[in-house]
Simulated assay, not measured.
Amino acid sequence: MSDVPTPFHIGVRVYYEDTDATGVVYHANYLRYFERARTEWLEAQGLGHQSLADAYGIVFTLADLSIRFRRPARLDDRLSVSAAVAERTRARVVFEQEITRDGALLIQGQFTVACVKVADFRPCRLPEALIKESR
């Protein structure tokens, strides 16, 4: 068995609204695609943002990000967006993410999300359901 976690994937289609005047995805929209993949990853764990807020009084906030643009995505492209947990501590999760088209790497990103209390946005522990041994 590999020590590298299997990435979670979602499909995304590039719509006209996602592009600039040249038909290329506007750079800020890649952040939306990455966020969708992390949200769907969370749902696949049996949790959701609203259920975490309701049950535990917590939310996730983006604490840090790094993106490397390699190739553009264009109007009507079918993309695959991945999310893999690279590191997990008691109060944060670091995701390694990629956007590909037909297997070709377009964008790479690393995103750190912190667990915070809804009431005061102070850091707090991840729920037990999300605390697993890091590989």
Results as ranks from 00 to 15, higher is better:
residue 33 Y to A: 04
residue 33 Y to N: 02
residue 33 Y to I: 01
residue 33 Y to H: 02
residue 36 R to I: 00
residue 37 A to T: 04
residue 39 T to V: 06
residue 39 T to G: 05
residue 39 T to W: 03
residue 40 E to T: 04
residue 41 W to G: 01
residue 42 L to M: 02
residue 44 A to H: 15
residue 44 A to P: 11
residue 46 G to K: 13
residue 47 L to A: 13
residue 48 G to K: 15
residue 48 G to W: 15
residue 49 H to L: 14
residue 49 H to Y: 12
residue 53 A to F: 08
residue 53 A to H: 13
residue 53 A to P: 10
residue 54 D to G: 07
residue 55 A to Q: 15
residue 55 A to H: 10
residue 59 V to Q: 14
residue 59 V to L: 15
residue 60 F to A: 08
residue 60 F to Q: 05
residue 60 F to D: 04
residue 60 F to H: 02
residue 60 F to C: 09
residue 62 L to T: 09
residue 63 A to V: 07
residue 64 D to C: 07
residue 65 L to M: 13
residue 65 L to N: 00
residue 66 S to F: 00
residue 67 I to K: 00
residue 67 I to Y: 00
residue 67 I to H: 03
residue 68 R to W: 02
residue 69 F to S: 10
residue 70 R to D: 11
residue 70 R to T: 09
residue 71 R to I: 04
residue 71 R to W: 09
residue 73 A to M: 03
residue 73 A to F: 05
residue 76 D to W: 03
residue 78 R to E: 10
residue 79 L to Y: 00
residue 79 L to M: 04
residue 80 S to F: 03
residue 81 V to C: 09
residue 82 S to E: 04
residue 83 A to C: 13
residue 85 V to K: 07
residue 86 A to T: 07
residue 86 A to S: 08
residue 86 A to R: 14
residue 87 E to W: 12
residue 90 R to Y: 09
residue 90 R to T: 07
residue 91 A to V: 09
residue 91 A to H: 10
residue 92 R to G: 02
residue 93 V to D: 01
residue 96 E to P: 01
residue 99 I to R: 01
residue 99 I to P: 06
residue 100 T to Y: 03
residue 101 R to S: 08
residue 103 G to D: 06
residue 104 A to R: 11
residue 105 L to E: 05
residue 106 L to D: 02
residue 107 I to G: 01
residue 109 G to A: 08
residue 110 Q to K: 08
residue 111 F to G: 03
residue 112 T to Q: 04
residue 113 V to L: 12
residue 116 V to D: 05
residue 122 R to E: 09
residue 123 P to A: 07
residue 123 P to R: 04
residue 123 P to I: 09
residue 127 P to R: 11
residue 127 P to L: 10
residue 127 P to N: 12
residue 127 P to F: 14
residue 127 P to Y: 14
residue 128 E to T: 07
residue 129 A to S: 12
residue 130 L to M: 06
residue 131 I to G: 02
residue 132 K to T: 11
